[in-house]
Amino acid sequence: MMDAGHKTQLLESARALIAALEADNEPDAEVQLTALAEGRDNNLFIEVGKLTRDLHAAISNFSVDSRIANLTEHDIPDSRDRLDYVVTLTEQAAHQTLEAVDKAIPAANNLLELTKTVPKTTDATSQQGIDDVFLSITQRTHTIQSALSDITMAQGFQDLTGQVIRKVTDLIEEVETNLVRLIKIAAEHQPQKQVSPIVQEVDPLKAEGPQMNAAHKKNVVTDQDDVDDLLSSLGF
């Protein structure tokens, strides 16, 4: 963009150049031509100077913001550790739960069998048998109680992993905000041009793990019934 003062100056030089040329005044024409070129150079210098100042400010703002350096050097590797921790903890809890179930199921089965062995009559000789059965029932019940309590305790992972996951999502949000800022700063220095959206080739067979918001995705089934319907439509 050319400011008004500069424009007037250019016009004056141009008119003087034409006048000098028409008058066959060669030295004068030379002077006006040089003035024109200088005017153009000056304007370019001003623009380059402005850009340099902006760029310098942007760069120094970035280095001043130690948060960004910290993000890349510390927080992101730390997030990986945190997520590994979540995997380890959830795995441990799942195994603890399964072990408790493994203990509870035979004990419960055993209880059921024991109730069938209670003598039907209560004469003096069967009293000992009844006492034995009740002792066994008490023992098995304690096993089941403690297994159930282990299952409850194992669920404590949810609290711990939940806190860790929340920290990581906060970090991701911060990285996103900083990236948006970076893009904005870069865009201010970019000449406006039409940017065609990048079309990403997606392999529909690529494994993605559990789908988030499956209900909003057209090519994703939401439950086993959908899978069965799809397969039966294929002749399964």
Partner: peptide
Amino acid sequence: AETKREQIIEAAQAGVNGYVVKPFTAVT
């Protein structure tokens, strides 16, 4: 846990005998 239609169709065409999506139940 893969639940895209393309994937289920691919598995069927590759000759899978059954397709169960996670999380699943003992009954399924």
